[in-house]
Design a protein around this nucleic acid. Structure first.
Lengths: 342, 342
DNA sequence: CTGTTAGCGCGTTCAC
DNA sequence: GTGAACGCGCTAACAG
């Protein structure tokens, strides 16, 4: 593997000059520059990332810590992050936290404190790890939060208005005439799980529909859980005519349950999801759901993080907006699983 | 950020000693070791990854180049890779090639030639990029191939027997009495697409079932494509009674098409998938499919790659097995979409 | 068992 | 416009 020294020798110049043309820093004679470029091409030279990182104290890499990289939920968010990273010529490194506190700490250590990344994007509203995040924030390293919030002014946060979105979803059902509405909740040690349930309750209250606690089944965001919950709901003596699942995974499980029971969707029961994962439009019936702006959430957070890395503070957190967070709105996507408004 | 020098000062020893206890290299006095550890803890010290990589000429990171990190197809494979990497204390960096040749080259440059990774796992059977891969192989850097093959003895490869698997799938249909079987192929510029179609043809031939070319529809592995293909198949005057899709994504699209048409699965038409992605078991009817050993493929390839990195050659490619590749078998998973054998 | 000395490959002052 | 010299933080001989 050729080094910068080899290139310098080949071009008959010093290392510094090669470094200059590499980073187009300072003025270099055009002819000299050409010679250097030729040498680079001839030797098939490529700068060593570690050496560069060590000298510059910068890795040009951002880390992303999330529960499970393979979860389809993250698909659009990851694409958003990657797009922005590409634009700014940053690489991105992924770390699976599995919502495990030990993993969390290890990741933070090896990634951030080991200077593997210039900053870290922390994704997820699991509330069991709050002190890890707080500790991280107080260390002063560049981080940004997605689906999570902090008051600290130098930390950009981007969240979806889960309460509001759940209200919209519920009201959509209400507006279609449903009054017995079941709810399959997410994990209630996740802020998003809590908020969506709250939105559901608020919407019902605002429409003066009394809520039957029996119709609220605690779930965990998993497909099978949605399946089982739906089974329970449907075997009730007085089953709901509509069901709001706290994410698409569970909604898809609920659809499977209803289908197996021969219950028609949406004729017999309407099912509404949340997130709009890619699969939501691929199944039958296509899922009506609240589309989270996941791409935007990812790209925005990445943009903010890179800005903090480069300038030391967030754009949205200037004097006028200290303590502000970026709250994005989800959008109702009407497909087939709840029928159509008449 | 504390450095190794700070720790040395704090503990009253030299940097080398700190380095020794850090890497437990050579014998260090127990008491000294304790002092060093105490200093490390006190200063909250963590070694700088770039510096270490530069000094050791080793990043302890492997790269994974695949078309689209977010594709659910890769879920189990990625988990397999990560598990092995974890065991060997390697990090893994992902690169999306998007099957784009330019991207390919950029990745190879910045990742491998820039010494960001110690080796690269190349995933995918897209045959348009063969020379890139060949070029890479000839460069002598440690790589391993998944879903792809080369004769070069120092390059580990792991593939699934797609031809055999497609035969098993087709025969399953045949054994259930189907003779008019439709086939939705994958992209035919992917080796996997070609092989699965071949297996389909061979199985029919072996059962002396003449094949109606009209029933073979060229697809591209995408959900919508499966949907449209199924629509075409079903509107034929003499539609097939069973359909083999070349992957689950298309099979799921086909199920959606049939469901919308009110065609019963499996009563009116059996649908078989390929891959066994997580969603295959989540939809209605649950998909009967060929389960690729994706976790195994990922873990095995990672194991091999790390071995090549550490020892300079593959375990499976010794004198006795030069030119051998690891061929894993897919497994028939019978669920609901093809009915049950009677 | 431990400290000293040399790099690893590159960016970045400084002089010239 | 260009080169020499130093340092980034760490590992790896080599002495002692």
């Amino acid at each position: 593997m050729a080094t910068i020294m080899d290139v310098a020798r080949e071009a008959g110049v010093s290392r510094s000059t090669v470094s200059r043309v590499l980073n187009n820093r300072g003025e270099v004679d055009a002819e000299t520059s050409q010679r250097v470029r030729a040498a680079i091409a001839k030797l098939d030279y490529f700068p060593n990332a570690s050496a560069r990182a060590l000298a510059k104290q910068k890795t040009d890499t951002i880390g992303v810590m999330l529960a499970d990289l393979s979860d389809p939920f993250y698909e659009r968010m990851i694409k958003g992050i990657q797009q922005v990273a590409d634009q700014h010529h940053y690489s991105v490194a992924f770390y699976n936290s599995r919502d495990d506190l030990t993993d969390h700490r290890n990741i933070v250590s090896s990634a951030l404190r080991g200077n593997r990344v210039d900053g870290l994007l922390i994704v997820g509203s699991y509330i069991g790890d709050s002190d890890t995040v707080l500790h991280l924030i107080s260390s002063g390293l560049p981080i940004a939060l997605i689906e999570r919030y902090t008051d600290h002014p130098s930390v950009p946060c981007v969240v979806c208005d889960n309460v509001g979105a759940a209200k919209i979803a519920t009201k959509h059902l209400l507006n279609m005439g449903h009054t017995r509405i079941g709810c399959i909740t997410g994990r209630l040690d996740f802020q998003s799980g809590i908020d969506r349930l709250m939105g559901f309750r608020e919407a019902l209250a605002e429409h003066s529909v009394s809520i039957d606690e029996e119709l609220i089944i605690q779930g965990n965001f998993q497909n099978n859980c949605g399946y089982r919950a739906m089974l329970r709901l449907m075997e009730m003596s007085n089953p709901p005519t509509a069901v709001l699942a706290s994410n698409d995974m569970m909604a898809i499980g609920a659809i499977r349950a209803a289908s197996e029971l021969g219950i028609g969707i949406p004729e017999d029961v309407a099912i509404m999801g949340f997130d709009d994962i890619t699969f939501a439009a691929m199944i039958h019936p296509q899922l009506t759901t609240m589309r989270q702006p996941l791409f935007k959430m990812g790209s925005f957070a990445a943009e903010q993080l890179i800005h903090v890395i480069n300038h030391g503070h967030s754009t949205t957190r200037n004097e006028a907006t200290i303590g502000a967070k970026e709250v994005l709105q989800a959008e109702l996507v009407v497909r087939k699983s709840c029928g159509s408004v008449t």
